[in-house]
């Protein structure tokens, strides 16, 4: 953007947002939507799975959102958003053709290279599926590079499971296991009643040859990571995507610090081994 008065401070300034247009709005569940955004100048962002954008609307401030699509170098990107909080609710009210601002991509993303040639367990809870969807897409595009791949995905009810139309399709290439606290309605795949950690016994693979990625509510991360550690997986092989109140995205505002780590710069994806030595990591 920066077409105001051409001041040098606006060019390439990470604190100055850029403009994107809502190309498509997809309703995922009762309170969740996906926005397919296209950059005003259509230049690709060059983002990686697990990185995030600061999406915002002037006057509403900004909030961090992980990419829920794989970079296709057309300048488009998708964010899945659940209505909660000020800016998020406003984003959910947007319609096709409306404009949003974004800054990014920020962060490091999922360490996919570490998973190459190994087994991969993805654990997602609720909206935590959004940052893992590009991982699923990447795995499906490069299926031969990975060994056994599991997606363990839980939500409050069956209706709250996101990307419902794609789950069966994913199941053709990777093992998709679903759980919901309350099962109702029909899905092409079976849904187990209960929390997502109950799916772990159904994962039969050598944990020493496995990388785990997880994203979801704090309590889910605690229990799922705990269960995997008990089963013998090393804390260096468990990666979690953490939540903080990022405001700047460039390791300046200090809000997202966990010990010596900045979630916006060093994360939001961390190896469990790197963060458990600090305090105030999880709620």
């Amino acid at each position: 953007m920066g077409n105001g008065n051409g001041s040098d401070i606006l060019e390439d300034n990470p604190l100055i947002p850029q403009l994107a247009r809502v190309q498509k709005k997809i309703t995922e569940s009762a309170d969740t939507i996906s926005l397919r955004l296209v950059r005003a100048d259509s230049r690709p962002l060059g983002y990686r799975p697990g990185q995030f954008n600061m999406l915002g609307l002037p006057g509403f401030k900004e909030a961090p959102f992980s990419f829920s699509s794989l970079e296709d170098y057309t300048g488009t990107f998708v964010h899945t958003i659940r209505a909660a909080g000020n800016v998020v609710s406003a984003l959910c009210r947007l319609r096709q053709g409306d404009h949003v601002t974004f800054r990014g991509p920020f962060g490091t993303g999922w360490p996919l290279d570490k998973a190459l040639g190994r087994n991969l367990i993805l654990v997602a809870g609720g909206i935590g599926m959004a940052p893992l969807r590009p991982v699923v897409d990447y795995v499906r595009e490069n299926r031969d590079s990975f060994r056994d791949v599991f997606l363990l995905y839980g939500a409050k009810t069956t209706d709250d499971l996101l990307y419902r139309r794609q789950l069966a399709q994913w199941n053709e290439e990777i093992t998709v296991l679903l759980a919901a606290d309350r099962v109702r309605g029909e899905l092409p795949l079976p849904v187990q009643e209960g929390v997502v950690t109950k799916l772990l016994p159904r994962v039969h693979t050598a944990l020493s040859e496995t990388i785990s990625f997880m994203c979801g509510p704090q309590v889910m991360i605690k229990f799922a990571a705990g269960a995997l550690l008990l089963d013998g997986q090393s804390a260096g092989d468990i990666y979690v995507s953490l939540e903080r109140r990022m405001e700047c995205g460039v390791a300046q505002c200090g809000h997202c610090q966990i010990g010596a780590k900045f979630v916006c710069k060093d994360g939001p994806v961390f190896a469990l081994a790197d963060i458990t030595r600090f305090q105030d990591t999880l709620l």
Binding site: G59, F60, N86, S89, A90, R93
Partner: peptide
Amino acid sequence: VTSLLLGKRPE
């Protein structure tokens, strides 16, 4: 007042 105009929760 401005939050009312914008339709957001005031901070």
